[in-house]
Design a protein around this nucleic acid. Structure first.
Lengths: 240, 240
DNA sequence: CGACATTTTGATCTAGGTCAACAAAAGTGG
DNA sequence: CCACTTTTGTTGACCTAGATCAAAATGTCG
C-alpha cells in the first residue's frame, strides 16, 4: 500500500485499484514541516484537508487564562476536518509535535474524490465516526476517571491506534510526546502526570521513556484504565 | 416551517420546497416516548436516525465503576448519528430525559434523501460539525476550566442553542434537567454542583430553578464562563 | 397521604494543584 | 567540540478545589 493514509482507509472499507490510484495522486506531493508548526490556527478560514503521512500532530485550544487543552492526537494515516470547509472559521488549532510529512488535499478535490469513489467516502466516514468515538472517550475520561486511570486509558488508546497502523510492535511504541503535552491532553499538571507515570512504572504496568512507551503488562494496563476498546474495535478488526 | 428539525437544517443551508417536503414526509410519523427511555443502548447495532421533535434527551456512558458520564444533550431539532450505521455497535446510549416526541428515519431512507437533496446533506454536515465543535468545547471545559466556569459555560451553550431554535426568550429558558444529570454531564458531584449553582445565584449571574434557567446577567455569565461562541457562532449567524 | 426523588446544607477528607528547586537532556552559537 | 542557554523531567513541601459522608428539607406523584 502506498502510504499509511491509504492503508488505513483500506482497512475501513476495501478500496479498489482506481480508489487507491486517485488517493496516491492526491497525496503525491506532501510537504515537510518542522516540529511545533501550526498547520492551521483557531480563527483561520478552514483550508485543505490535511493528511498526516509521517510524524505527530495535535489539535489544541488555548484558553483565555493561557492554559492549553489538547483535543486529539494525529498520527500517520490520520486526516482531519472532513467538510469543515462548510464552517466560517476554525474553533481550534492544529500543530505538529515533531518534524512531520503532511499532504494537503484541496477541499474541492476531496469532494470530487468522495463523489466519484464511494468506497473512499465510506472509509472517510468510518474514520470520522471513530474520531467521534474517541472524543466521547476523552470526555468520559476527563469527567469520570481518576488521573491514573485517565493516563492508562490514553496510553491504551495510543497503543491500539499505533498497532492498527503497524507503528507499534508487541510491547513497544515510539511516542515522541513530552509530559507537558500529555498533561495538556489529560487535563492535569505536568508535575502530577510525572508522579502518575512513576506509579504506573512501579506497578509494572508501563514505562514511558523519552520518546517511547513500553507496555510492560498489557492486561494490567487495561485493567487500570478500565479500557473497553469498543470505540476502537472496528479499527482493530478491519485494519489491514 | 413544519418542525424544529427542518427549521434548524434550513438555518444551516437554505432548503428548497422539495427538500422541505421530503423532510416533512420522513418525520411525519413521530412516536411518543416517556421520560428515561433508552432510545438505543451501548452495544446495540445502530438503528435508524433519531430526530428529536419535542423534549430532551442525552447521550451517556456508564463506566465499570458504576458512574455515569453524560456526553451531550439533545434538544428539539437535534438529530443523531449520521453514518453510524457503518459501525458495528453503539459505544454509548441515548436516553430521553423528559417525555419526548421522536421521529426515526431508516438509514437507507436517510442516505437516499441525502443523495437526492444536496442542500439537506450540506445542512446535516454543518450540524455534525457543530456537534463536533461542541464535543471539543466539552473536552476543553472538563480539562481546563474550574467548576464554576464549567457550569457557566454549559449554561451559555444550552442558552445559545435554545435561542437558536426559538425555545428561549430574552432571559429565560425551560431547562428540565435535574442537578444529578447536570452533574453527570459536568464531571462533578451533585453536591458540589449545588454549591456552584448557589454561588452563581449569589453573584447575580443566573438562577437555575426547577425546570428553568433564568440568566440574570448575561454578560457576567459569559465572563465567568470565558465563553467564546465561535463553535456555535455559525449556528447563531445562520439559524432562522 | 405516603413513598420516593431531588435539592440543600454541614463537616470532614483527599486527589491533585501550586510553588520551588534541582537534575538531566537537548539545542545553539562560537 | 565545548561552554551555555533552554527545555524537559523529577522530587519535596504544602495547599485548596472539589469529593465524600450524613442528614434534613423540599418536591413530586401514584
Amino acid at each position: 500500500m502506498a502510504n499509511r493514509f491509504i492503508s488505513k482507509l483500506n482497512g475501513y472499507a476495501p478500496l479498489g485499484k482506481a480508489d487507491i490510484a486517485v488517493l496516491e495522486a492526491a497525496t503525491a506531493k506532501p510537504r515537510d514541516y518542522p516540529a511545533k508548526f501550526d498547520l492551521i490556527r483557531e480563527g483561520d478560514r478552514p483550508g485543505p484537508v490535511f493528511v498526516m503521512l509521517e510524524g505527530w500532530a495535535c489539535r489544541y485550544k488555548i484558553l483565555p487564562n493561557g492554559t492549553r487543552q489538547v483535543l486529539a492526537f494525529l498520527m500517520p494515516g490520520d486526516s482531519c476536518d472532513l467538510h469543515i470547509g462548510l464552517l466560517a472559521e476554525m474553533d481550534h488549532s492544529i500543530q505538529t509535535l515533531v518534524p512531520s510529512v503532511v499532504a494537503t488535499i484541496p477541499r474541492a478535490e476531496m469532494d470530487a474524490i468522495m463523489d466519484g469513489h464511494r468506497a473512499i467516502a465510506k472509509a472517510m466516514y468510518v474514520g470520522q465516526l471513530i474520531d467521534e468515538g474517541t472524543m466521547r472517550a476523552w470526555i468520559t475520561s476527563m469527567g469520570r476517571r481518576a488521573s491514573i486511570e485517565r493516563v492508562a486509558h490514553l496510553m491504551c488508546e495510543l497503543y491500539i491506534r499505533a498497532r492498527a497502523i503497524g507503528a507499534a510492535d508487541e510491547r513497544q511504541l515510539a511516542l515522541p510526546l513530552s509530559q507537558l503535552v500529555l498533561a495538556d491532553a489529560l487535563g492535569m499538571t505536568p508535575v502530577h502526570l510525572n508522579r502518575v507515570l512513576k506509579e504506573l512504572r512501579l506497578k509494572g504496568a508501563m514505562t514511558l521513556k523519552r520518546g517511547s512507551l513500553v507496555v510492560t503488562d498489557p492486561s494490567k494496563l487495561v485493567q487500570i484504565a478500565g479500557f473497553d476498546d469498543n470505540y476502537l474495535h472496528r479499527r482493530l478488526r478491519t485494519a489491514a
